[in-house]
Amino acid sequence: MNVFRLTGDMTHLASILVLLLKIYATKSCSGISLKTQELYALVFLARYLNLFTDFISVYNTVMKLVFIGSSLAIVWCMRMHKMVKRSYDQELDTFRHYFLIAGCFLLALLVNEKFMFPEVLWAFSIYLEAVSTIPQLVLLQRSGNVDNLTGQYVFLLGAYRALYILNWIYRYFTEPHFSRWIACVAGLVQTALYADFFYYYFLSWKNNAKLQLPS
């Protein structure tokens, strides 16, 4: 464990807490893409299959349970909770995410570290996470103005993977046989997708103005 990865995990946890705060405090999920939440739930389920088979550390197990539990709770809330689901931007959240799932699974069958079921699913979860934010970014562009908590949620979600890239660079130089090129390349794509969001987020912070994404 290194400082980049720990801050990355804490940033990821913070993004989930901000999202839970927004949904719980405002009883609204306006501006949040249900499709991105469903993709993230799938990412965690596919990636953490080894939850009960490989014990790595208490921290690792606890965080996996938190990520799986919170992502399923958010999807449940947005689909079932009568107050919350009323505020869901159904007509704006129309990105066909099933294509993302199919494409990532096909890619995982072709490009993986070992052609074994757990490894293919792991690669699938890495590729899917890289593109899972697309429905959310599309929704933000369509919905124009973004409330603060939603903006902070998306910012933290993007920042965590950028910190993971620093972690991979650090591990590459400090560990002899470290090679996570699948996660690195996917992580770079994932972070690059946030580039324009980061730019407008920075502008809104610098000018102390409302976060506006050009539609």
Binding site: H12, N60, M63, E113, K114, W122, R180, A183
Partner: peptide, 10 residues
């Protein structure tokens, strides 16, 4: 056999 890369990251 080469141990499958243990995925120790979240």
């Amino acid at each position: 056999a080469e141990e499958a890369e243990k995925h120790d990251e979240l």
